[in-house]
């Protein structure tokens, strides 16, 4: 399931909902992304996430379908927030459920790697006096490429 929302989410409730009614699931793996302050810069006041409504959902569904075609996943969930977020707030939840742990671990890592390089989200960092758009990270692109090796 794909959800793009401004509101925060409750991880416990979401994970419970993910597995409810499916006793074939033997394991759940989850990743939660948080707004991180940069120790190398001045203090981050907030981060604003802009996205492309419509295309975002399309790309996330495509990534989700790809994960299901590569691993025997029983269920998966991506919740991504947008809008202005403070350091420490939750940005994204990715969760995968499968009969055995390997598929859940690998599927979860694949989803977050692809999400970061394919989903149309842009981040603007607010340092009080200075605001700047975050450039794409070479390290993220490499993390995605490894799945094609």
């Amino acid at each position: 399931m794909i959800i793009v929302q401004r509101e925060d989410f409750e991880v416990g409730i979401e994970l419970k909902r993910l597995t409810e009614g499916n006793n074939e699931i033997g394991g759940v793996c989850s990743f939660i992304g948080l707004v991180r302050d940069s120790p190398e810069k001045e203090s981050l006041e907030a981060m604003t996430l802009q996205h492309y409504p419509g295309m975002t959902e399309k790309e996330l569904n495509r990534i989700d379908d790809e994960a299901h075609s590569r691993w025997p996943l029983e269920a998966s969930l991506i919740i991504h927030r947008y809008g202005r977020l403070q350091p420490g707030e939750q940005i994204v939840l990715v969760a995968t459920a499968s009969a055995h742990r390997k598929a859940a671990f690998e599927g979860c890592e694949f989803l977050i790697d692809f999400l970061k390089t394919r989903a149309p989200f842009w981040k603007k960092e607010d340092y009080g006096l200075v605001t700047e758009w975050v450039g794409s990270l070479e390290a993220d692109n490499r993390a995605t490429e490894k799945w094609y090796e």
């Binding site: 977050i112 390089t117 450039g135």
Partner: peptide, 12 residues
Amino acid sequence: VALFPPVTGGKY
């Protein structure tokens, strides 16, 4: 049509 910079995931 949409024009935009390369997408940026979070810094997590």
